[in-house]
């Protein structure tokens, strides 16, 4: 309990620091949103009015506190470009990005855990070595290039899906998931390859320890030793890695969304950065940051469940 409390406190402090940094970062940007909105020919009076209206005249700390308060109550301001509330703009995008990330993560786990254990078990066989080579190559291909290869093969040649024809979940859930499966594979493949490699080496390393020899000497079969003893211990470094990977995939989906023209958070973020639509960019970055911090927190908790020896 004390452990959870400590981690919770760390998480809250991190959220505070990160939101502060995001807020500050968007204050030092050169280029004035007001002149962006009104154009260069605006009168000084007009500019002053709009600054007042947007609350750009008040001191920074006040604006930060107000922003954080509003942010956590779901009020993220208005988009400079569209004049819509940021919340309404993001509401329909968040489920898309989260679904994509979760799907990719499930794929990583489904591919890498069985394959990693299989490779460790058959370490000396030629096919295990062949998988090693394929792994090393897969790891080196960036997700957006995997996405393009998939688009070409499955979209343009085999025509299993229509590239760019994104189906919204409001129209058809099946169509939505069906479209997302290809980008999910693109995000998952390189990450899965890394996980396989890590899991394999982790299992092999654990296998050399004394307790494994003891377990064997007590008459356990290879499978029993592997699944009852080694697996759980070998999983610890893998969980750390999967936590980092999940956080990375949230950000990585930004690029892959671009490849498959998925109208998620990533695409909106890129657009808002290039049009200097700060309230939108700021909100998206803060949201992704909070998701990442929360994932890190969950990983810490999960550790404790798997390995009770961890107390600090």
């Amino acid at each position: 309990m004390k452990y959870i409390g400590k981690k919770l406190a760390t998480m809250l402090i991190t959220v505070l620091i990160v939101t502060m940094l995001v807020f500050l970062a968007f204050r030092v940007i050169p280029g004035d949103p007001v002149s962006n909105m009104l154009g260069t020919s605006a009168t000084e009076e007009k500019v002053a009015n709009l600054r007042e209206q947007l609350g750009l005249n008040r001191p920074l700390p006040v604006r930060y506190i107000e922003w954080v308060r509003d942010f956590f109550f779901g009020d993220m301001g208005k988009s400079y470009t569209y004049g819509m509330s940021v919340k309404s703009m993001l509401a329909s995008k968040i489920p898309i990005t989260i679904t994509l990330t979760v799907m990719s993560f499930i794929l990583v786990v489904l591919i890498s855990i069985p394959l990693g254990i299989y490779c460790a078990k058959h370490e000396d066989k030629w096919y295990s070595k062949a998988i090693d080579v394929i792994n090393q190559i897969t790891m080196s291909v960036p997700s957006f290039f995997v996405g393009m290869i998939i688009t070409y093969i499955f979209g343009l040649v085999l025509r299993w899906f229509r590239p760019g024809a994104f189906v919204n979940y409001k129209t058809s859930v099946v169509g939505f998931l069906g479209y997302l499966i290809f980008p999910a594979i693109s995000i998952a493949l390189p990450k899965a390859a890394m996980t396989v490699k890590l899991l394999k080496s982790s299992v092999l390393k654990e296998g050399k320890l004394d307790y494994v020899r003891t377990a064997y000497s007590r008459g356990n079969s290879t499978d029993q030793v592997l699944y009852k003893h080694v697996f759980k211990n070998a999983l610890i470094p893998v969980i750390t890695f999967l936590g980092v990977t999940l956080a990375d995939m949230v950000a990585g989906s930004i690029i892959v969304e671009q490849v498959f023209s998925i109208p998620g958070l990533g695409r909106l973020l890129i657009t808002s950065i290039s049009t200097r639509d700060y309230p939108v960019a700021q909100a998206i970055i803060a949201i992704i940051a909070c998701i990442v911090i929360f994932i890190n927190f969950m990983v810490d908790i999960l550790y404790k469940v798997i390995d009770p020896r961890i107390s600090k």
Binding site: V18, A247, D248, A251, I255, A289, V292
Partner: peptide, 13 residues
């Protein structure tokens, strides 16, 4: 603990 791509985006903006 932070995805570097996201931080890079903040810097670039």
């Amino acid at each position: 603990a932070f995805p570097s791509l996201l931080l890079a985006l903040v810097f670039i903006s």
